[in-house]
């Protein structure tokens, strides 16, 4: 039981939040995508999604690039190598915790 609790406490808190977990899982399945794609897939509000992305960027898990496609502004999002590693670790930790 102690082992189980320790495994749970070692889960990455940044990824463990359901909204951020969904974002990271979606980004893990693509090379890159834009803000609109994540907005459609997660069904979050723009503000909520933006807040989660900022937290993930601060943790170094997500790379955010502001760019233009023609004259239209576009926010490109990519999962970084540490982000991908963190998701793998989280999934392993999840199996170990239970």
């Amino acid at each position: 039981m102690n082992e189980q609790l320790r495994a749970i406490s070692e889960l990455d808190r940044v990824i463990h939040e359901p909204g951020r977990l969904m974002i990271v899982a979606l980004l893990a399945g693509v090379k890159e995508c834009d803000f609109l794609f994540l907005l459609n897939e997660t069904r979050m509000s723009r503000g909520n999604l933006s807040t989660h992305l900022t937290k993930l960027e601060t943790a170094g898990y997500v790379e955010i690039e502001k760019t233009y496609r023609g004259k239209v502004p576009m926010t490109l999002l990519r999962l970084t190598r540490p982000g991908r590693k963190a998701l793998d670790e989280y999934r392993k930790g999840l199996m170990a915790a239970f």
């Binding site: 399945g29 693509v30 090379k31 995508c33 834009d34 794609f37 459609n40």
Partner: peptide, 9 residues
């Protein structure tokens, strides 16, 4: 409609 997405290859 669903946004810009590039799948990994």
């Amino acid at each position: 409609r669903v946004g810009y997405v590039v799948l990994p290859r």
